[in-house]
Amino acid sequence: MIIINAMIEVFPVLMKGINITITVFIFSSIFSYIFAFIAGLCRVSNNRLVRGGTSIYVEIFRGTSLIVQLFWLYYAIPMLFDVGIDNRLAAGVLAISLNYGAYMSEIVRGSILAVDKGQTEASIALNLSRSQRMRIVIFPQAFRMMLPEFGNYLIQILKATSLVSLIGMTDILYHGNILRSTNLSAAPTVYLLLLVFYFIMALPLIFLTRKGEQISKRGVAS
């Protein structure tokens, strides 16, 4: 009974943050994919400069902590260069997208390279141009291979959104933390409910991942 009462008390507080969590998640996902595709395609470019520059981006953002990247974007860079992002949403979304875009670009690159070489050869024999080969033959096949991993990363991005509470964005974790600091005994209920919140939001993504796996299994082998 006590627990249920506590939940009734905690639930509406957390709900106040759900908008922010979902907004950050949606924008971060979109931009992660955009960065992933751009960087992934650059990594298979013929131009060494493009390839080299992109791999520097990928390695830096994969090799350092997301939280520190977030703090750099929101606190450090504005101070150093006097220009920067005073918009928390933009900083949060940018940090998460750059970080996950770097990871996901490896999936894009790997999938493109995993398409059978015979496909490129057949397209050359049909005299398709380099960009036609990528657009019509290679990419559609590579894309199917990307789907399962892309789904996995969506779930990870959702969980990463909780970090934006650290730059003062009022997401569900932020509201939970406030509540706990004013009412210490509520801690177990708050964090239990937070887990449930994230899990429920992840459910459709898990389902999407499964769907992606099915699609990628279908029709790739010739």
Partner: peptide, 10 residues
């Protein structure tokens, strides 16, 4: 024409 056909599976 190739040994392994190389048709476009999609």
């Amino acid at each position: 024409v190739f040994q392994h056909f190389n048709l476009f599976p999609h």
